[in-house]
């Protein structure tokens, strides 16, 4: 399989494998989420695999594609935990930002840049959750947390651990997915 060989259009068989790999990798991320294997755990916090997937997907696609991926994976993560506050907001923002950053040429598509992007976006995703919880605290009477201070103190711990772990594990998921999508569509998708 020479990646530089001209390919007219992916045929049905390639389409099938493309979807198989795409959906399979999402499923794999979902199944790894509840696991705490050695090296995937700092202060009881694990890497945000769905965020890594959204970044890998969005980085060579349009902002709309990124947002849709964020929405879909956010809903899936809600199904595994609790529906409110939703994870979809954070992942949509991550998808859009990852795609914009790359289009504006702020960042290249190498592994170090991707790790950096994931680090920043992990902070943003966790902040989105903390903002939602704060809004719930301010506007809703039965809030989960007893004070805004408690939310943001916990946010510091979660955001930093999650950002470090996610950025360290990002290449493990990003590299194979990128190679696969490149091989399937050498000119760059769409």
């Amino acid at each position: 399989m020479n990646p530089y060989r001209p390919q007219p259009r992916p045929n049905a068989r390639q389409h099938f494998w493309n979807w198989f790999v795409t959906i399979g990798s999402v499923l794999l991320c979902l199944l790894v989420l509840p696991m705490r294997l050695p090296g995937m755990d700092v202060l009881g916090v694990g890497p945000n695999w769905l965020l890594i997937w959204v970044v890998a997907w969005s980085i060579s696609r349009t902002a709309l594609d990124g947002a849709i991926a964020g929405l879909t994976l956010g809903l899936l993560q809600d199904s595994l935990t609790a529906p409110a506050p939703t994870h979809a907001f954070g992942l949509i923002i991550a998808g859009v930002l990852a795609s914009r950053l790359q289009q504006r040429r702020f960042m290249q598509e190498d592994l170090v840049s991707v790790a950096l992007i994931v680090f920043g976006l992990a902070l943003i995703t966790e902040t989105t959750t903390a903002v939602q919880l704060s809004a719930q605290y301010i506007f809703d009477e039965d809030s989960l947390y007893k004070s805004l201070g408690a939310i943001w103190q916990y946010h510091q711990r979660v955001a930093l651990s999650s950002a470090i772990l996610s950025s360290l594990w990002a290449p493990a998921l990003y590299y194979p997915l990128k190679r696969w999508w490149e091989r399937l569509n050498p000119k760059g998708p769409k």
């Binding site: 499923l27 979902l30 199944l31 509840p34 696991m35 849709i68 929405l71 879909t72 994976l73 956010g74 809903l75 899936l76 809600d78 199904s79 595994l80 529906p83």
Partner: peptide, 28 residues
Amino acid sequence: LILLAIATAWGVRQTNGVFISETYQLLT
């Protein structure tokens, strides 16, 4: 495809991720 993806994700969310939990149990 976009609609299908979002509808599937919504469905999984409404069923509390039964399919994912069961697969996880089977694999582990």
